[in-house]
Amino acid sequence: MITQQLQLPNGQTIAYQLDLRARRSIGLKITAEGLVVHAPKRISASQLQQVLQEKSSWIQQKLALREANQVAPMQWLDGEPLLFMGQDIVLTLVAHPTSKAVTLEGDKLLVRSPYINNPDWVARKVLQWYAQQALPDFKRRVALIAAQMGEQVSGVGLSNAKSRWGSCNSRKQIRLNWRLIQAPPHVIQYVVCHEMAHLKEMNHSARFYAVQASLFPQYEHAEKALKALSPILHRMA
Rank of each mutant, 00 (worst) to 15 (best):
Q4F: 12
Q5A: 13
Q5V: 13
L8E: 08
P9C: 12
T13L: 13
I14T: 02
A15S: 14
A15K: 10
Y16F: 15
L18R: 11
A22W: 08
I30Y: 07
E33A: 15
V37I: 05
H38R: 14
P40M: 03
S46Y: 07
Q47K: 10
L48R: 08
Q49D: 13
Q50W: 03
S56N: 10
K62I: 07
L63T: 02
L65P: 03
E67Q: 15
P73Q: 13
P73H: 09
Q75E: 14
Q75L: 14
Q75G: 12
G79H: 09
E80I: 01
F84H: 12
Q87H: 10
I89W: 04
I89S: 04
T98V: 15
S99C: 07
V102L: 00
K108E: 01
N117T: 11
D120L: 14
W121I: 09
A123F: 03
K125Y: 04
V126I: 14
V126A: 06
L127T: 09
Q128I: 02
A134M: 06
K139S: 07
R140S: 12
V142N: 03
L144S: 11
I145P: 01
Q148G: 01
Q152V: 14
Q152S: 13
V153H: 03
G157T: 10
R164G: 13
N169I: 07
N169T: 03
N169W: 05
R171C: 05
R179V: 03
R179I: 01
R179L: 07
R179Y: 09
P185T: 00
H186Y: 13
V187M: 08
Q189F: 01
Q189H: 09
E195C: 12
M196Y: 04
M196E: 05
A197L: 10
H198E: 07
M202R: 15
H204R: 06
S205V: 12
S205N: 12
S205L: 09
F208Q: 02
Y209G: 00
V211A: 15
V211P: 05
F216N: 06
A222P: 03
A222D: 13
E223Q: 15
P231C: 11
P231N: 08
